[in-house]
Computed example of a mutant assay.
Amino acid sequence: MVATFLKRLKTDMIGASSVEYGLLIGLMTILLIAGISALGVETTNHFDNAQAGFES
């Protein structure tokens, strides 16, 4: 019974595809969050500089 399960698990490619897609989605999510964070910091710096220009 266990041997049959392990043999079937070894040849099952559907699970491998799901894991690969999950890893790709996770990587894209991390890259998206990093990009948005970097863009947010840069935008904040631009607005701070503009505000400082109006105050002087």
Rank of each mutant, 00 (worst) to 15 (best):
F5A: 15
F5R: 15
F5Y: 15
F5T: 09
L6V: 06
L6Y: 09
L6S: 06
L6M: 11
L6A: 08
K7N: 06
R8M: 06
R8S: 08
R8I: 01
L9H: 02
L9N: 03
L9C: 02
L9S: 04
K10S: 08
T11F: 10
T11Y: 10
T11H: 15
T11N: 15
T11M: 09
D12V: 03
D12M: 03
D12F: 04
M13N: 12
M13K: 15
M13V: 08
I14A: 14
I14Y: 05
I14D: 07
I14P: 02
I14C: 03
G15E: 06
G15Y: 14
G15R: 14
G15D: 05
G15V: 10
G15F: 10
G15Q: 09
A16G: 02
A16Y: 08
A16N: 09
A16K: 15
A16D: 04
S17F: 12
S17H: 11
S17P: 00
S17Y: 11
S17G: 09
S17D: 10
S18C: 12
S18T: 12
S18H: 13
V19I: 15
V19H: 11
V19R: 14
E20P: 00
E20G: 04
Y21A: 06
Y21Q: 11
Y21C: 00
G22F: 03
G22K: 03
G22S: 09
L23G: 02
L23Y: 06
L24E: 05
L24K: 13
L24Q: 06
L24F: 06
L24R: 12
G26H: 12
G26C: 09
G26R: 15
L27N: 04
L27W: 11
M28P: 00
M28R: 06
M28N: 05
T29C: 07
T29G: 10
T29Q: 05
T29P: 01
T29I: 10
I30N: 00
I30L: 13
I30R: 07
I30K: 12
I30S: 05
L31K: 05
L31V: 04
L31Y: 03
L32C: 08
L32K: 11
L32G: 05
I33Q: 03
I33N: 02
I33M: 10
I33C: 04
A34L: 14
A34I: 10
A34C: 07
A34N: 04
A34E: 02
G35H: 02
G35A: 07
G35Q: 02
G35L: 08
G35F: 06
I36P: 00
S37D: 03
A38I: 08
A38P: 00
L39I: 06
L39Y: 13
G40W: 13
G40F: 14
G40Y: 13
G40P: 00
V41T: 07
V41R: 14
V41S: 08
E42P: 00
E42K: 15
E42I: 11
T43C: 03
T43I: 11
T43W: 13
